[in-house]
Amino acid sequence: MTRIFITLVTTTLLALSFASVAQDEDPARAGTSAEKAAAAGASEARSREDFRAIDQEVQSLKKEVLDLNRDLFLLEEELLFPANSQVAFFVSLDVGEYFNLDSVNIKIDGKEVANYLYTEREADALMRGGVHRVHMANLKTGEHELIAVFVGKGPNVRDYRRGATITFDKGIGAKYVELEITDSVKKQQPEFAIKEWE
């Protein structure tokens, strides 16, 4: 009987001591988990900021590459086509109801220098008012002969091939030549002209 009583008392005491330890530990545990959550939140915010900074850096690098590419392109052009001997040829299309452009062939002084095929999209861009730089060359000062042959579909979707020629004088400084396709409502035909721009 005494033994049973002693066992009971010991068990109760042990249970009480465990309970007190548990009570002491609970707030501490709660404290650590809150701290952990706060730390996790802070690190997430930091990584988000880092990510944003990296993204900005990548964007600025991309911009720098694009700028560099543009500068190199301009530099290359300046070196290859010095302004003094430069001649640029442009193609423009006004209305284009009587002519569906397929290709333009350019000969300078009897030598073929460009043969450009126009896709549907490119021809459409020209019809919307776009101007296409079809060729760029370096020419000596003096007289030069230009022959432009326009190929496409004419009125009633017939195959159409027409040439235009001009003798132009290349002076000092850059020169711009426009190959212009227009509609002649009177003739119900397309017209081809070559214009010089100074």
Binding site: S103, L117, T119, R121, E122
Partner: peptide, 15 residues
């Protein structure tokens, strides 16, 4: 490059 195709239209790679 741009070339004439079997359908008659011109096709350009960059497009």
């Amino acid at each position: 490059f741009a070339l004439k195709s079997s359908t008659g239209e011109n096709l350009r790679l960059s497009e």
